[in-house]
């Protein structure tokens, strides 16, 4: 079943940069889609247009029969709470406790007042704790978020997204700021949890090998345009070259 439809999505920033030049694709339930492309290709803008952290200039994003681009404030809140997101920089509230960071995932379901004054109930706390236990951080829940290592912070980020009970997960370069070992751990958690919970995932990556390992489908973006959309095994060396415009060689040399 189709969960998300992106139709003719365009984005032009006020400074004149054109980030997206008409992107079309669909996401079905249960898919784990990896978006690859060189930096500056528009991957991040694309992901942020899905939950409208960035306002698209043109086109439509249909999530569960509702148009994100045209949604009013209240509808947008309802859409956003069903879409979890994890970030390259983790983006935890550093001074808040690990538990509170996960509880933030429930804000979209709470009244304004309760959310503003930290009035989370016991069952919400319990659920948050279980999620943290699931990502192996059951012992750290009262620590301040900035006391954790990068890999641990990203796991809190995953738990925060899961607390939303999302139907779709957006992951913007989730392992770009991590060392190789933590990267493996994070990708495993992300993949397994999405599979187990039946959450569709849209994940930006720049490592082609990681993309091939996890993806059920790969989308290649170059200069704001979709240049590839298919199964991992269809992604040939030629196509990779095309996506990265011969930047592939540099990448290999860096690794």
């Amino acid at each position: 079943m189709t969960l998300l439809q992106v139709k003719g999505l365009e984005k032009k920033y006020p400074d004149g940069t054109v980030a997206l030049k008409g992107i079309d694709f669909e996401v079905n339930e249960g898919e784990f889609i990896v978006i690859i492309g060189p930096s500056g290709a528009g991957k991040s803008t694309l992901l942020r247009s899905v939950n409208r952290l960035v306002d698209a200039t043109n086109g439509a994003v249909i999530f569960k029969d509702r148009d994100v681009v045209k949604a009013g404030t209240r509808v947008l809140r309802k859409i956003r709470r069903e879409i979890g997101m994890i970030f390259q920089g983790f983006n935890l509230i550093e001074r808040a406790s690990v538990l509170n960071n996960v509880l933030h995932g429930r804000l979209g379901y709470m009244s304004d007042f309760k959310g503003m004054f930290y009035l989370f109930n016991q069952s919400q706390k319990k659920t948050a704790y279980e999620l943290l236990h699931r990502v192996g951080l059951g012992e750290q829940i009262y620590k301040r978020a900035d006391e954790l290592s990068g890999g641990q912070q990203q796991r809190v980020g995953i738990a925060r997204a899961l607390a939303q009970k999302p139907a779709l997960m957006l992951a913007d370069e989730p392992i770009a700021s991590l060392d190789p070992v933590s990267s493996n751990v994070i990708m495993d958690y992300l993949y397994n949890i999405c599979r187990e919970e039946g959450i569709a995932c849209l994940c930006n990556l720049h490592q082609v090998d990681v993309a091939k390992k996890y993806a059920t489908r790969i989308i290649g973006i170059h200069a704001g345009e979709k240049v590839f959309d298919g199964k991992p095994e269809e992604l040939t060396e030629d196509i990779i070259n095309q996506i990265y415009h011969n930047k592939k060689k540099e990448l290999v040399a860096n690794e």
Binding site: L53, R77, N91, I93, E94, A96, L107, G115
Partner: peptide
Amino acid sequence: IDMGQVEAVRATGASYGQVLAQGVLPQ
């Protein structure tokens, strides 16, 4: 302040008041 943290709270579907209270205020 780190706008990434604010963005993350916004992405959970939090309202403007909640974003100010949970994302901006702690910083």
